[in-house]
Nucleic acid binder design. Structure first.
Ligand SMILES: [Mn+2]
Ligand SMILES: [Mn+2]
Ligand SMILES: [Mn+2]
Ligand SMILES: [Mn+2]
Lengths: 222, 222
DNA sequence: AATATTTTTTAGATTTGCCTAAAAATAAAA
DNA sequence: TTTTATTTTTAGGCAAATCTAAAAAATATT
């Protein structure tokens, strides 16, 4: 019923990787957790004994029902702390992740429920990712890539697919942040680049590559 | 520059015990940390290598300058989190300790400074203990035992020497909590018991033993 | 001072979580 | 279908943090 910080980090990593490829390979986990594949195999055997993962040698792994339940709890804690750090302590939305990576392991049921109430039961973290509720229910992220929108539509930036420093710099350059309303003026068929307008700034061109990394809330479409 | 959770807990325990008896004995530490004396000896050798403690076999230990600096940082984090838990998350002052025991190990300098600012730079934790500032300065606790006050004096309850469940029950019974203004009506020489009055309640008798565990702020004296 | 008791340390194990190097299994290419 | 390359596992080791049992040192008692 009580897991180590390492175990929790493994479970969360599997949860994340699982959403794009299942089963999750040993090597993918090694990259994600910045450890050696041999260490992954080691831990997967332990997690299997504890019935948190389904794992057969050479076949990769996936979370069991119990593992999924645990993962959602960790994700909940992570995202609630991120919200707290951004909203109450005024951290920048790109600084909150590393701190939440530690806070997420402080597991006191009461603590998280009260934090949730104190924050006013937020539904999304500062990156636009949904926060699971106390029973583990999680909203399907109503986010779509900016490239999927048609010309002459508006949407609110709610997240990033790739949060590399390069990407963050590009956004800073363009005055785009979480919550910014972006409007697509034109789409260029040749290289699929977009002409984008944001309030208070002149229009500018963005490459398809960059636009694919920007996630927006679909609802706002004009 | 970066210490494990165990190391931090040892340093904090030495800091606490040091305030009453120095040097700190191996057995005292074993009791405080709920481990075996052999484990203490082991860890003291490691902490000595890291120059956090002064330790010679059979002679007990004390904190080095660096160890003291570290201890004050941990105490600062612990007490700021306790304040947060009580003030913002509405935890009872006797529930905050265990949670802060975990949160204190999340060591991100920025985090603690911003938390401090968010809380309005509190000077005392919910138990009335002083919170070290960011440079490690700590106020001498202006607390005295209730027994040291003379008859016909008033004072504000600010802490407890012993926080056992029995003690907490006794206080609950008498409607005494942190912040309560207590007035000493009489002192009985025979058994050193006290007649005490608190606003809105009839006077009652308290044993010397109990009164010694109640810490008050001296300033309020009538 | 000699003996008994308590405190502390050493010796030897165990668990967790990681590593490197080598072997084995699987997948891809020739 | 061999051969080659990649992925994954095994084997063996190491450091941290704990334990038990036994030895040694320090204290207390007779
Ligand atoms: Mn983490
Ligand atoms: Mn996030
Ligand atoms: Mn602690
Ligand atoms: Mn306290």
């Amino acid at each position: 019923m009580n897991y180590s910080i390492s175990e929790e980090n493994y479970i969360k990593a599997i949860y994340r990787l699982q959403s794009t490829r299942e089963p999750v390979s040993t090597n993918a986990l090694a990259v994600e957790l910045d450890t050696k594949p041999a260490s992954i195999t080691d831990m997967l055997k332990r997690l299997k004994v504890k019935k948190l993962v389904i794992y057969y040698p050479y076949q990769g792994c996936r979370l069991s029902a119990e593992g999924t339940r645990l993962a959602l709890g960790i994700v909940r804690r992570h995202r609630l702390w991120e919200y707290f750090l951004a909203e109450k302590l005024k951290f920048n939305w790109n600084e909150v992740h590393d701190i939440a990576e530690e806070l997420e392991h402080v597991s006191n049921g009461q603590l998280i429920e009260r934090l949730d109430a104190f924050l006013g039961f937020p539904r999304f973290d500062p990156h636009g990712d949904p926060i699971p509720d106390s029973s583990g229910k999680i909203a399907t992220p109503s986010q779509v890539k900016l490239t999927t929108l048609g010309a002459h539509t508006k949407a609110k930036v709610s997240g990033l697919a790739d949060q590399s420093q390069d990407m963050l710099n590009l956004l800073q350059q363009r005055n785009i942040t979480i919550g910014t309303i972006v409007e697509i003026n034109k789409k260029f068929g040749f290289d699929h680049s977009l002409e984008i307008k944001i309030p208070g700034n002149p229009p500018f061109i963005m490459s398809e590559q960059a636009a694919q990394n920007i996630l927006v809330h679909h609802e706002l479409e004009a």
